[in-house]
């Protein structure tokens, strides 16, 4: 069953001055349990596509459906609430809260969901263990390496129990070892817990590990391949 479905999705920036067609009638769907990379050169529209799917940006035309709910016409407040409940995000720059410890960063999203304190703490600890940071729970982002910070970001994205995780260039700022380590963790979660990951990337290491690769050029889907 498709978790995410887009229908003739288009995005034009500066429509009244110098129009830039970031997406052109993109129709695509993603199934539960996928480990997919959306790849393409800069300006190909991969990040824009992820932003539309994540409800961070609104399309000029077309629609996005998540688990049967069309999010395209939602208000800003509805979108914020929807994202909190259904979508996990991993950003290129980790974007952790610098004044929080790793444990607090992971717990924070559950706090926004108004979960029980004990449940939050247990789940946050469990997720940090899963990403291999059980001994760094009380460290603040500044005290962690880039790879460790990105692993905290993955744990945070998983904490809200989203339907899928959108990861925008998650390995772009990591060295090879950290990148491979992070990919191992995400792949394991996908395989063992059926967590759905959708990446935007031009990192060959991520592309090689993805089971489906969607190639984008000039705002359109050029190829959509399943890898062995």
């Amino acid at each position: 069953m498709a978790i995410v479905k887009t229908e003739k999705l288009s995005k034009i920036y500066n429509p009244d001055t110098v129009p830039v067609h970031a997406l052109r009638d993109v129709t695509i769907s993603f199934e539960e349990g996928e480990f997919t990379s959306v790849v393409g050169p800069s300006g190909s529209g991969k990040t824009t596509l992820l932003n539309m799917i994540g409800g961070l940006d609104k399309p000029t035309s077309g629609s996005v459906e998540i688990d049967g709910t069309t999010i395209t016409g939602m208000s800003d407040r509805e979108l914020i609430d929807f994202r909190l409940k259904h979508i996990g995000f991993v950003f290129q720059h980790y974007n952790l809260i610098p004044v929080f410890t790793a444990l607090e960063n992971v717990s924070f999203i559950m706090l926004l969901q108004k979960r029980e304190k004990s449940e939050m703490e247990n789940r946050a600890k469990s997720l940090l263990e899963q990403v291999g940071l059980s001994d760094r729970m009380d460290a603040r982002p500044k005290q962690l390496s880039g790879g460790q910070q990105q692993r905290v970001a993955v744990a945070r994205a998983l904490a809200s129990e989203p339907r899928f995780i959108l990861a925008d260039e998650p390995t772009a700022n990591l060295d090879s070892t950290s990148a491979m380590n992070l990919l191992d963790i995400m792949e394991k979660m996908n395989r063992e817990q059926n967590v759905t990951f959708i990446f935007s990337t031009h990192d060959q290491r991520v592309i090689d590990r993805a089971r489906r690769v969607v190639y984008m050029v000039d705002g359109k889907i050029d190829r959509d391949e399943v890898q062995k």
Partner: peptide, 16 residues
Amino acid sequence: MREIGMLISIGMSRKG
């Protein structure tokens, strides 16, 4: 700016 953008992305209300 980026951090606050992240907070709104992951689901923190603008009121918050």
